[in-house]
């Protein structure tokens, strides 16, 4: 108890004053072929079984790695060369914003889901603050 009461104000202070660097984060977000899953899921939406979609997307990553390219830098011929089912339309999912927006089921990272979480968590945090404000023991002390 006492250790937590010592520790928590310091953690809260550290978090409240943390400065993030959005430009670094945004630049890093698509790196490392982070949109490969989105390519596989795009193929699934085109009717390709996930087992094959996973292979095709993996081949795309391997090709890019060899060629020193990012996924969204492949031209139409290179895409078709990897697999004919990689039509130019695949580029529609090769953006970070698109990848985020697509994860819009409950629990996903889509901006509207995150905004909902924020709202619900604010209510909980306020409730917790209210609960902590009065001790049933205090009157007797």
């Amino acid at each position: 108890m006492e250790q937590l009461l010592l520790l928590l104000p310091a953690v809260t202070g550290m978090i409240a004053t943390l400065t993030l660097r959005p430009e670094v984060l945004e630049a890093a977000a698509p790196q490392g072929f982070a949109l490969a899953t989105d390519v596989a899921e795009w193929l699934v939406r085109q009717g390709v079984p996930f087992r094959s979609a996973h292979e095709i997307s993996g081949a795309m990553v391997a090709f890019c790695e060899q060629a020193g390219l990012e996924l969204d830098q492949l031209d139409d011929d290179q895409l078709a060369g990897i697999d004919e089912r990689l039509t130019p339309e695949v580029r529609s999912v090769l953006s970070v914003r698109g990848a985020l927006a697509a994860r819009k089921a409950r629990g996903g990272t889509a901006p509207e889901r995150v905004a909902e979480q924020l709202g619900a968590l604010k209510e909980l945090a306020a409730e917790h603050g209210r609960w902590s404000a009065s001790s049933p023991v205090a009157a007797a002390l």
């Binding site: 917790h128 603050g129 609960w131 902590s132 001790s135 205090a138 002390l141």
Partner: peptide, 20 residues
């Protein structure tokens, strides 16, 4: 008695995370 203080601190940390 002290768990109230603990929950108060946790609430502050929740707000700090939400603020960030």
């Amino acid at each position: 008695h002290h768990v109230r203080a603990l929950v108060g601190e946790l609430s502050s940390l929740e707000f700090a995370l939400l603020g960030l």
